[in-house]
Design a protein around this nucleic acid. Structure first.
Lengths: 243, 243
DNA sequence: CTGTTAGCGCGTTCAT
DNA sequence: ATGAACGCGCTAACAG
């Protein structure tokens, strides 16, 4: 069942059916109704590939998760991220393609599968990149392919679009809240300094302490890697501190 | 840059280029080399949509995760599942589309987005279904669409393909191992009986006890829901038992 | 082994 | 408002 058949059954041209299917306004009510009946009755649905070929859009968005962040298994952030991406795609009537490099190959190399098949094949309308590493080379690649993209997590280059939580501000607000409640000995468990979010939150913590004229005690800064395990360990260590 | 251009530059026909690109053996070595040079030099890569339209294959596989299993966030199984699916797709030079229903709509209804756009649009070559619920109605849907699919987790109907761990056998082997080491008082923390895996593993436990002629003591069977929390609680409860 | 010829199913001018 | 005609880029018979 394709456009052609629907057109025949409805006694109109393919163009008209296409217009109805795509919600084009320039179709008389009667014709529209007739076409819609046929569509419904025969369960017609446009073929995605043909549509993509003609329209030059795939209605597929990519979510690129660097394998490097092997944290996919431990960090509870990823399931949430994935779920959110899928939801957003659903709402926009798009589909989500999950892109992760497989260990063996350099993910950003010119010849990588990702690069070859997905990016060059124009398989995607755009891609969101869960950039773990600052200055990920994938950025250059995406630019060269002229594929619209957005980074998840701040990026130094002001020209690249990104979305991120306000890590520093949030951290600062949390600590300020404790200060406002009279606390004066406030600890934090900081993430790796190699990761932006880790640095930013620690900065926010320090911001708030400084604003409250509280001393910054290194002994009150625990270390973690965003995992439960580390958080657990660091918490115990902190509580083991002398008061 | 498309087949046509490559053909022109290499002084051959489109078909020949297509053959080279698709690894068809019936091309002379010299011509093949010439074509490959042009391809590499100009960074040609076949357009996915056009290819799909002509070949009637998308090289996209779906991974359907029912939202119902809200466990996506807590159950560490899902990240592993997703990762595994992506890896398998990568190896087979396919891509993975992630399918999850969004809360608001009945996932299996005829008019659901999933059904309309993805299944009927022939967007996928096949789909793997992380079936949580026994007798998921999505099975009927997939059958009707004649879309190849495989369930992740056992299914009652022998006609549907599924992959699963050998829960019963694995459990039996684990317990038998303890028995072989002289243990005679063996406990288990069983999953929900409503879930196949839970029942199967408990059955395996009982199998092994029976085979060893050991009594089955209900007090040694803890309850859990596959979560860390429950496992922790149940373990404490078991250790609290009188010896 | 290579080229020619048809489509694949749809979007999109351009006339009417 | 509707239809005719063309093109999207590629695969797949079919000849030769």
């Amino acid at each position: 069942m394709n456009l052609e058949e629907v057109a025949r059954l409805a006694g109109v041209s393919r163009s008209t059916v296409s217009r109805v299917v795509n919600g084009d306004a320039k179709v008389s009510a009667s014709v529209r109704a007739r076409v819609q009946d046929v569509v419904r009755e025969h369960g017609y649905h446009p073929n995605a590939a043909a549509r993509s070929l003609a329209s030059r859009r795939t209605r597929i968005l990519g979510l690129l998760i660097p394998r490097a962040s092997g944290a996919i298994f431990s960090d509870p952030f990823f399931p949430v991220l994935i779920q959110g991406a899928v939801d957003a795609c659903n709402h926009a009537d798009h589909n989500l393609m999950l892109l992760m490099d497989t260990d063996e190959e350099a993910p950003t190399a010119e010849g990588s599968r990702l690069h070859r098949r997905v990016l060059r094949g124009r398989h995607l309308d755009g891609v969101a990149v869960a950039a773990s590493v600052v200055d990920d080379p994938v950025v250059a690649l995406l630019r060269k392919e002229r594929l619209p993209f957005v980074l998840i997590g701040r990026h130094p280059d002001p020209a690249v679009a990104y979305v991120d939580a306000d890590n520093r501000g949030g951290s600062r607000a949390a600590v300020a809240h404790l200060v406002a409640h009279g606390r004066r000995r406030i600890a934090t468990i900081a993430g790796p300094r190699t990761i932006r979010a880790g640095r930013d939150r620690l900065d926010g913590y320090r911001d708030a302490l400084a604003a409250a004229k509280l001393p910054s005690n290194p002994a009150l800064i625990g270390d973690g890697d965003f995992s439960r395990r580390d958080a657990h360990r660091a918490t115990h260590a902190l509580f083991g501190q002398p008061p």
